[in-house]
Amino acid sequence: MIAIEHLRHVDAAPARAARERYRAGSVAPTSGVAPGFTQANMIVLPRDWAFDFLLYAQRNPKACPVLDVSDPGSHATLLAPGADLRTDLPLYRIWREGKLAEETADARAAWAEHPDLVSFLIGCSFTFETPMAEAGIEIRHITDGSNVPMYLTDRPCRPAGRLHGNLVVSMRPIAPGRVADAATISGRFPAVHGAPVHIGAPDEIGIADLGKPDFGDAVRIEPGEVPVFWACGVTPQAAVMASGVPFAITHAPGHMFITDIPDSAYHA
């Protein structure tokens, strides 16, 4: 894999330091943390559900671009040698029968319930925020120190096996003169959601109120700014809820796994 090859030439100390903080118990959204290193969403499922999800991701690549898949029972990833997926994210969600049962900073106890768990790491739009910011495009949730707003849309994903659900999107308000630039820059990163899926008119995708996100925090939108929407890696959590998945572990929205892979590895 091209991403793994990049590990040979990269000093990933900032990414490792961030993971060590989270392993020690620090809890905070990861947007803007260890800039330049790829971040990933995560969903962990019993082996019996893993093929269904792999097919779901293949059918919905914009929302679920898979970066790595673990062996059953493993809590390691080639994207960050030495990392532990049970402890190295800042905040986890434990799901039972499609309902959120718990949020925790340490998933080891829940992980131990199933010996055959398969972990999926999925591209995250935080990855292209750094090049957008370097181009002078403000990332409002970073400016204001909040989590990115995420919304459940009325757009159904393609079902697969027992999994179904609607698309989740993240939103960033962009100055009208920079919308095309934001689309162009993010479009260069297809492995981490790529270009926007919708621009403006939130009601056209079933979002009634931008001030009430389904996940994350509402952000300030200045007069004239355009809401721009990207496919979001929280989409698997919407599928967990809609499909009544018996057991799953995910990242908490906005609290990602920071890999040792540089963003440039996923630049098309």
Rank of each mutant, 00 (worst) to 15 (best):
L54E: 14
L85M: 08
E113H: 03
H164A: 13
T30D: 04
H198V: 06
T87I: 12
Y151T: 11
I221H: 00
W49H: 14
I122A: 09
R47H: 12
Y22L: 11
L121V: 10
G211V: 08
I185H: 03
Y56R: 12
N147Q: 11
F189R: 03
A76W: 02
T38N: 11
S70Q: 08
A268P: 13
E134A: 15
P213N: 09
A191K: 15
A133R: 13
A133K: 12
A24Y: 10
L45F: 13
D71G: 01
D68R: 10
R21Q: 15
T87V: 09
D263K: 06
L85Y: 06
L55N: 12
V27S: 05
P236G: 01
I142C: 09
W230Y: 03
E20D: 15
G123L: 03
R19L: 04
I43M: 04
A208R: 14
V69P: 04
A18D: 11
L100Y: 03
D48G: 05
D88W: 03
L89H: 07
A80F: 01
A109P: 00
D84P: 09
G123E: 01
P176A: 10
A180D: 13
H75F: 15
A101K: 00
A12G: 13
I205Y: 08
P90L: 05
D260E: 12
A109C: 00
H267Y: 15
D48R: 14
W49C: 06
A195V: 07
P72V: 04
T250M: 06
I205D: 08
P72I: 04
Y92S: 01
D181M: 11
P253D: 10
I261L: 10
H267P: 01
E204N: 14
G123I: 02
G211I: 05
V234F: 00
D203R: 14
R140T: 15
A15R: 06
P81E: 11
H198S: 09
S26P: 00
V69E: 07
A183H: 04
L163F: 13
P236L: 00
R172N: 08
G194S: 11
E5K: 13
W230T: 02
L152S: 10
T104Q: 02
I4F: 14
G194N: 11
P115E: 10
E103H: 02
R16H: 14
A180V: 01
A83N: 09
F37D: 06
F247Q: 07
L55E: 15
S146R: 15
I142F: 12
V192C: 14
C124V: 05
D116K: 03
P61A: 10
S243K: 07
D181V: 00
A17I: 04
Y266L: 15
P159G: 02
F128E: 01
H251G: 11
C157N: 06
Y22D: 08
